[in-house]
């Protein structure tokens, strides 16, 4: 950086001012609003809303869907990353594109496609009924939609890391006769650990907050297929503002937790990468 002139200093503080104003107005203020609205009628009302039976049920369902999405996407992400970075095969480019597809699909459409696949209009609907399997307007549908919207979150963190590093270490280990799982556990995983955790955090963040897709597929059955974001919507639309914001504050808390986790992971990952050759 060269010497600052008077005018460049003015530009600097003007730009910082604009940025801070933007962040405060657009990002911080909504956050504060959630908290102040939630406690508008005192702690007792807040506590009642948060410990309400439906809220607790919605919380557990959100957790369940998030956990399942993370688990499935982990299995998928690790498999896809291994397959796409360790081997050359025809159709690899197409596969990569297909994996990224879900993020470009509107959440509403994400919900809709599961409705069409498993709902009353679907050709397999009678089959599902015979087996007594409920997917649409039930928990499995919510889980599927959640997996869909978070689909590439883990694999796309892993693939660039593995690609940048090459396959020499894995090849060296395989040459010595190590089995696939040993290679993964001892050589590959330590390297992608932070990227993987980062992906998990992003996946969890999106999964717990998913609204549109789940809204379409859930059927809004209170106490049954209501996740926290859906519960917030119902309360808000019933003009129960304080309880709505109280429930929202749980999600804000989770979001802040996720942001902190994200920063920590990023920091650790960067530190680790610096040590390496």
């Amino acid at each position: 950086m060269y010497k600052e002139t008077k005018s460049s200093k003015a530009v600097k503080w003007f730009l910082i001012g604009v940025s801070v104003l933007f962040v405060v107005l657009m990002l911080l203020l909504p956050l504060i609003t959630v908290i102040t609205e939630a406690f508008k009628q005192g702690f007792a009302v807040y506590e009642k809303a948060v410990t309400d039976n439906y809220t607790v049920k919605a919380f557990w369902l959100t957790l369940e869907a998030t956990a399942l999405a993370v688990v499935i996407n982990t299995v998928f992400g690790l498999s896809a990353a291994w397959s796409l970075t360790k081997f050359h095969f025809r159709g690899k480019k197409i596969l990569t594109t297909l994996i990224d597809l879900p993020v470009t699909v509107s959440p509403i459409i994400a919900g809709l496609i599961f409705l069409l696949t498993f709902g009353r209009q679907s050709p397999i609907f009678p089959l599902l009924q015979d087996w007594d399997v409920k997917i649409v307007f039930a928990v499995p549908g919510i889980v599927l939609a959640t997996i869909f919207v978070t689909f590439p979150f883990i694999s796309r963190e892993l693939i660039p890391v593995l690609e940048a590093r090459g396959n020499d270490e894995e090849e060296a280990a395989a040459l010595m006769g190590a089995k696939g799982f040993t290679i993964f556990r001892k050589i590959t995983f330590p390297h992608i650990k932070w990227a993987f955790l980062y992906g998990v955090v992003l996946c969890a963040a999106r999964a717990m907050g998913e609204f549109g897709a789940v809204s379409v597929i859930s059927g809004h059955l209170r106490g049954k297929t209501n996740t926290l974001p859906l519960h917030v919507e119902i309360l808000f639309n019933e003009f129960q503002y304080v309880p709505a914001f109280a429930v929202a504050s749980i999600l804000v808390l989770l979001a802040i937790f996720i942001l902190i986790a994200r920063s920590l992971i990023e920091y650790n990952g960067k530190k680790k990468n610096k040590v390496e050759p």
Binding site: L27, P30, L31, T33, V34, E37, L202, A205, R206, M208, G209, E210, F211, G212, L228, P229, L230, V232, E233, F236, A244, F245, A248, L251, V252, A255, I256, I258, L259, R262
Partner: peptide, 13 residues
């Protein structure tokens, strides 16, 4: 934040 905060919460806020 917009990545982490559920959209519905952002919406009502």
């Amino acid at each position: 934040l917009p990545f982490a905060l559920p959209t519905a919460v952002a919406g009502i806020a």
